[in-house]
Structure formats: C-alpha cells, structure tokens
Amino acid sequence: MSDLKEEEIKVFTDAVAHYFGQLTREPAAVRGAYLEREGEATPVYDFSGRIMVTGQYRGSVTLSAPRAMIRHLLVALHETDQSEDNLRDTVGELANTLAGNARKYFGENMEISVPVTAAGAIPGSDTGRDRPYVIMVNWKTYNASLVVDIERAS
C-alpha cells in the first residue's frame, strides 16, 4: 500500500492544477482522490505516460488522458503536429513535469526516470503495491487519471 500522507498527495494535485493553469490559463480541477479499492481497475484513457521513481521513494507516477484532451492541450500550445507520436510525447512530458515538480516537496532524493508512454495502458503496469492513489482530474470537458503509486524505500 502506498504510504504517502494526504499533504504529499496534495503535492501532485497542486502540480496538475498548476500545469494546466500555467499553460492554458485554465487550471485543471481535481474531481476526487482515493485509494484504489481492491480488484478495482485503474482508469485508463487513450494515452498514458509513466515516470518510475527510485531513491528514497520507489514506485511510479502515471498519467492517462483521452486523445481529445491532449489534442486540445496541443492546440493551446499552438502546436499543429498532432501525430500519434506527438500525442504520446505530450502525455509523457506531462507525467515527467508533474513528477519533476513534486521534487520541490520530496527533494532530490526522489529520483525520476525518463517517461515511458503507450497508447492505452502501459504494459507491466503493476509496480507492486495493492492500492495506489488515484487522482481524477478534470480539464475543460475532459477527464484524466493520475495514479500515484509511491512509497518510502525502507
């Protein structure tokens, strides 16, 4: 089970709100954050990006978002190339930014990887814990999920 405290989860909800607010002047809203229930499927959308966490913490941060949401974000960034590669790249960069921003709170000993991306779910998604935190994000009319599956390394 992820052993992060509520204030530590808030680091990620704040980061996701800030990301969209900074880039589009329309912050994302957090619709809810919960510990995934046993046997429950993690919400997965069209594209996913994952950052692996090592060092004093271990686990992963995974963002999954629908195609339309990423396309809309690219439009807001004046990006005309909306190829599959760029959509995957964007969701990976978003996950990377959220995890990188979290180091302001967790410190440099939370080491983060380069992003792994996929259309749909990322294969081999089980990082070991039974119940990660799921943060449901809303931006404009779109819903996305941010799964924070981190624990302190012993």
Binding site: L98, G100, R103, K104, G107, E108, I112
Partner: peptide, 9 residues
Amino acid sequence: VSALSDKPT
C-alpha cells in the same frame, strides 16, 4: 529548462 523543481538540482 527542466521540471526538476528542487533547489539542489
């Protein structure tokens, strides 16, 4: 230009 937001980095 980086997302790594800790001061030591």
